[in-house]
Each structure stands twice: as C-alpha cells, then as structure tokens.
Simulated assay, not measured.
Amino acid sequence: MQAKLFTPLSLGDLTLPNRVVMAPLTRNRAKPDGDVPHALNATYYEQRASAGLIITEATQITPEGKGYIQTPGIYSTEQVAGWRKVTDAVHAKGGRIFLQLWHVGRISHVSLQPDGKQPVAPSPVAAEAQTFIATGFAEVSEPRALELEEIPGLIEDYRKAAENARTAGFDGVEVHAANGYLIDQFLRDGTNKRTDAYGGSAENRTRLLAEVLETVTKVYPAKRVGVRFSPFSKFNDMSDSDPMETFTAAIARANDAGLGYVHLVEGEMGQSRDLPPGADIAKLRAGFSGAYMANNGYDRERAIEAVDSGEVDLVAFGRLFLANPDLVERLEKDTPLNEPDQDTFYGGDAHGYTDYPRLEEVAA
C-alpha cells in the first residue's frame, strides 16, 4: 500500500501531486547586480519540480528587506522577469511553486541597506548574530525602530511583492514569519518592546502578521497562501517569555485569514528537535484548520509515519532536497541519498547547486 506521503493533497483549487515539499533554502546565487534570478536558478528549481510543492528561497520584498548578499528580490521589473524564467521552467516540468516573501528586519548590515541606513526593527534591540556581506561574515548592524506611520507603507510593500509574485507566475506565496526576521521580531516579546498598538499583548504583537496576511490574501486566494513560524527556535538571537501564548495567538491569526497551510519549524532551526518545557506542537497545530506542514530533521521513516498517522499533512525537506533533485522518487523507492556538500551551500556557481546526480545517473 502506498504511503500517504506520496499521495495528492489539495490547497483550495491547487492539487499537489504528493506531500513532499521543498523547503525554502537560501543559496545566495542571484545576480550581484540587482539581486535578479537568472538561468542557473531556473535550472536548479526545474530539477526539483517533482516536489509536491517548491517553496523558493526567502525573497526580499524591498531593498530595505535585504540581509545577505546575492539573495533575490521581488520588487523590480528585472527580478519579476527573472522569476518568470523560474516559474515557467518549473511549470513546464509539471511542478508547483510558491514564493517566500521576506523582510529581514534587524538581521542586516548597513552595507546592504539603501544609502547605508540602519536596518529597521520593531524596537532598537540589536541582535547578537552575523550576516554575510561582500567581505564575508559580519556582525549585524544596530537597528532603529519602525515609526508607527511607516507601518502602512511596509504592509503595502508586502502587497506589491505578492502582486509581483503573481505577475511572475507563482502558484502562491508563503509569508516568512520565522527564524528571527521582521515579522518574527514583532511576534516575540524579546525583540518587540513597543508600547503602541503593535506591542505589549500577544494580540498586539500579532497585529502586523494579521495585517500582512489580510493584504496578501487580497492578491492570492487564501488557500494559496501559507505562513512559516519557528515558535521554539532561538536562531538569530530570538527569545519570548511565553512562546505557547505568542504562537497560539499567531496561529489563530493564520486560521482567521483562512490560509492554505501553516509551516512550522519543529525545535531549533536546522538543529535539535528537542522542545523546551511546556512546548506542545500538537496543541499549536490544533488551532489551525488548514493543512499542517512540518519541518526540521525529517527523514523518510519519520515523514511517512507522521503523515500516515495524520499528525502532519505535508513535510518540508531542506538539505535532502538541496542534494537530491529527485528526492521524491528516492524516498518512494527507498534508495540511497546524495550527501549535501556544506562548502557550497551559500554563493558560488553550478558546483553543489545544479550538479547533484539523479538516481539514473548514479546507476549509470
């Protein structure tokens, strides 16, 4: 009997052929001039089109939303045209692809910001974190707090980015509200010290998220929109006094918006799946009526078991998809997997990007 992991799932009117998702993976291979996707990126995503759904690498919605060199944007006509090459290539192979909408907030450096300005954040709380700039790794710069009157413009940036994603041919979008970036910074009380309508209570700290989801779901049908959270991850120097309260409220916002899925990083991003005392993913999941996408440390056995049991609906794979363009076939047939080469994860050329062998090439 076929494992449920390899069976279709519908997000509204969009049917995914299987439940194996390519997670968003930053690869720093956009054109340095203008952060534009190009032919090499199209080849990379096209190779992985057998995924039930591809979620692109995080893509900045504005120049101010950029935190690392050579990450792609979705705010210029050149970027939209570059992404259109990607979506056309994926669709030609029968694939489905969502764009991940990203604003890094405080996880940036003045050298990456327009006119060398300070990065923005909910509050002027500096992160003990590093980013990648033209000269290599660097400590992130001290941010300034977004003024209350700037927030409507930020929400408009999300709307324009979603419109651009639609123009570029994406099947949907995922709002990045995880891993210590801007929306996550608003959600958590370790980084959000505001005393206005966007700070204080969990209801207020989730207000920006709700407004972003509201504007994005006016561009795409709600079932073609997802959101990613990392409730228990400390990545990028994040903390919260009561993550269960915070993320119960955040997931309620996603549920109210009628989204197609919630995508959770279970545990520490890219590391341990262990949860802190009181953390309860099943309880968080129970607050959302759409599809639940799990992420972090899943292998074949765990993924099959989790989907068969009904514990999760979709499983997002990161490193395994990076090294195995035909991951769905390999998982279904239970064949050996290519090992990812960590030295080529960020930046570079086709090596470690589009040259991982497919199963038939290994056999040959």
Rank of each mutant, 00 (worst) to 15 (best):
M1S: 15
A3W: 12
A3L: 12
S10L: 07
G12D: 08
T15M: 06
R19D: 04
P24K: 03
R29V: 01
P32W: 06
T43G: 03
L53K: 00
T62G: 05
G65N: 01
Y68R: 06
I69G: 02
I74K: 06
I74G: 08
V80D: 00
A81D: 11
G82M: 08
R84L: 14
R84H: 11
V90M: 03
G94R: 00
R96P: 00
L99N: 07
V104T: 10
P114E: 04
D115F: 04
G116S: 04
K117R: 15
E128L: 14
T135I: 13
E139W: 12
P143M: 14
E149A: 14
Y158I: 13
R159L: 07
A162T: 08
E163S: 09
R166W: 06
T167P: 00
V173E: 01
G180I: 05
D184Q: 10
K193A: 15
R194H: 11
T195W: 05
E214W: 08
T217G: 15
Y220H: 11
P221N: 12
K223N: 13
P231H: 05
M238H: 10
S239P: 02
F247K: 13
T248I: 10
T248G: 13
A254V: 09
N255I: 06
G260L: 07
Y261V: 10
L264S: 00
V265C: 11
G267S: 05
L275K: 01
P277V: 02
G278V: 03
A279K: 06
D280L: 04
I281L: 12
A282P: 00
L284F: 04
G287E: 01
F288S: 01
Y292G: 01
N296L: 07
D299Y: 00
E305P: 00
D313Y: 01
V315Y: 01
F317L: 11
F317E: 07
L322P: 03
N324P: 07
R330P: 10
P340S: 14
D341P: 06
D343L: 13
G347P: 05
H351T: 14
D355H: 09
E361Q: 14
